[in-house]
Design a protein around this nucleic acid. Structure first.
Lengths: 364, 364
DNA sequence: CTGAAAGCGCTAACAT
DNA sequence: ATGTTAGCGCTTTCAG
């Protein structure tokens, strides 16, 4: 490995001169010297060791990213967006880790990041409390958390970025109501998180406004196993069976997210229920996969790129630069994308204008 | 940040003693001293800086992982498996990067890894030549490459791990033949890679053996755009339209991978062709998503976990430890998973025993 | 059994 | 305009 010393020797200058050109302080030397140093750097294929730089400056161009599971396409999608912003705008690389929504694993990851000198972290977690990262913040880390708000009352140094989950679920539910569905359900998994409860609130708000509160219910398909998120679709499948068994089963289902919706559709089909003839389903997320299902999934698109950009910018700014009220950023740009998984319920007494839902193109 | 000095002072010993306990050389001290040091470490919440350790030892517990795109569920799946082996068995974290199959981006990523002191990297790339990582190997990196063999004739220091692509495609094709399909096609994207050509070879080998070579063809749905892999499904969709337009269109399609198969099914449906009534489709990969489609996708499952484990173990072993003939590792554990996307062709003259394809459970 | 000291590769005062 | 030097936090001989 070639070092700054080698370059200095090769260019017949001192290490500090080389360091100066490395750090753009080129005004402090003759053009001729600069040229010579640059030539030597080229000739020797010299790359300054970030390790040594970090040790000295305390800064490492690495962004920590903590996701529940890399195998979940939604997180893959978010991660990719985060990566490109971090790389293109700040020259940072990603140090990633799956946590399977486990507190121990999250803490361990934070410890490692700290030890690696990483000072900025984006966390996608739904864990109830975030004390473990509050403490990281205290130790000098900039952290922003996705999809969960600050704990009310407790002022936090952790930044929060999230979609308008309430509105997303409300929109989805309203769409079902507009199609004359009267028996509504929200399909979720075991365990309550902030984003899940916001969605449930949105669901009930829409139902309430339409006077359908009494026939609206929340269905819990069960817990995620060790494998974390890729099995969420399996929970959807289980929920479908549950639905099929209900005496007067709901006809309009809002799913926690697209993966769950996809599982739901598969399960409904297995149970002999047609989508959308018997049951309508709408997802939340806007994954490109929703475009591939049969029927194509009607869903609420979340502004993933915008959120990714916001998270990166937020975590990159100098600590303490954000004012208190900026600590929580809610992205309202959610929109319904009508595809094929929603239709009026089978026995709809007064069918509306049969607006044919046209398939539409691509997504992410 | 608390340092080893702080601990030494707190425990009233020298830094080297602390270092000794950190590195398990506890035999060199009195139990009492050890206890005192450990107590101090606890009390001060001391975590040795990996940065400093690395600078000294030249080793960093980070594994570089280069994928075409994190948004591609297949790579998300592989990445997760790699991560868990790396973490659980070796205590390594992942430094990840998407390259969109671009040589420049790959090289840039390698440079950064080197600068960060990362000495081991797993590359999932399909680029024709791998000279850019040969040079990294020369600079002391251990690299293993997924899904491409060594360039014949050119001895390489790069390790290679891959599934038996030939056999995977052959199995898929044979399955179609067994179901009496006579007009076969292999659906791929623009650009030839080693794994793609192995699959095509397997496809033709099966066709040949059944005397169907003349009616077997390769369909190229076009190029991937900047977004890389998540649009592969769109290419599948385009291919479907192309198929529908063919005079005597093929009835049995083997797709390059599951994502493409999913897009193919969506496109076929748009074109008014039923799957599997009119056209049968089989994928390759074994993604859990194949379990969610309608009809559920029949596919060839690749031994992802085994390959992930092999790659990590390979890249972790001491450089030069592998013998020449181990340089290339082909995983033959591929197997067909029958689901619903394959049936005899519409005009099958002599229908076989109507073996009902049963839906089956889960996957990844 | 424990401590002193020499770096790892780089940065940034401080000299010259 | 360029060189000298003191560390960043840790590991590791080598002495006591």
């Amino acid at each position: 490995m070639t070092t700054i010393q080698d370059v200095a020797r090769h260019a017949a200058v001192s290490v500090s001169t080389v360091s100066n050109v490395l750090n753009g302080r080129t005004d402090r030397m003759r053009a001729e010297t600069l040229a010579r140093v640059e030539a030597s750097i080229q000739a020797l294929q010299f790359r300054p060791s970030k390790l040594a730089q970090q040790l000295k400056t305390g800064q490492t161009p690495l962004l920590g990213l903590l996701v529940p599971s890399m195998a979940n396409p939604m997180y893959g999608y978010i991660a990719r967006e985060i990566e490109s912003v971090a790389q293109e705008r700040f020259g940072f690389r990603l140090l990633i880790g799956s946590t399977y929504r486990d507190r121990e694993k999250e803490s361990a990851f934070f410890e490692d990041l700290l030890a690696h000198g990483v000072r900025r972290v984006i966390v996608i977690s739904s864990l109830a409390d975030e004390r473990h990262f509050e403490s990281a913040v205290e130790r000098g880390m900039a952290v922003v958390s996705y999809d969960r708000g600050a704990t009310p009352g407790k002022p936090s140094k952790v930044g929060h970025v999230m979609p308008d989950n309430f509105e997303a679920a409300r929109l989805a539910t309203q769409h079902l109501i507009d199609k004359d569905h009267r028996r509504l359900a929200f399909a979720t998994v075991a365990g309550m998180t902030m984003s899940r409860s916001a969605k449930i609130d949105g669901f009930f708000a829409a139902a309430e406004a339409a006077g359908l509160r009494a026939s609206a219910q929340v269905l819990d398909g069960g817990a995620l196993n060790e494998y974390g998120d890729s099995v969420i679709a399996e929970v959807g499948r289980a929920t479908a069976l549950q639905i099929a068994g209900l005496p007067e089963h709901p006809t309009g289902i809002v799913a926690l997210n697209d993966l769950m919706a996809l599982g739901l559709m598969a399960g409904l089909r297995e149970a002999g229920l047609g989508v959308p003839e018997d049951v309508s389903v709408v997802g939340i997320d806007g994954l490109f996969l929703a475009t591939l299902s049969n029927p194509m999934l009607t869903t609420v698109q979340l502004p993933v790129r915008e959120m990714a950009r916001a998270m990166v910018e937020r975590v990159m700014q100098h600590p303490g630069e954000a004012s208190e009220d900026e600590r929580e950023q809610v992205f309202t740009g959610v929109q319904l994308i009508e595809r094929e998984s929603v239709a009026p319920p089978p026995a709809a007494s007064q069918p509306r204008i049969a607006r044919r839902t046209k398939p539409e193109k691509a997504a992410p």
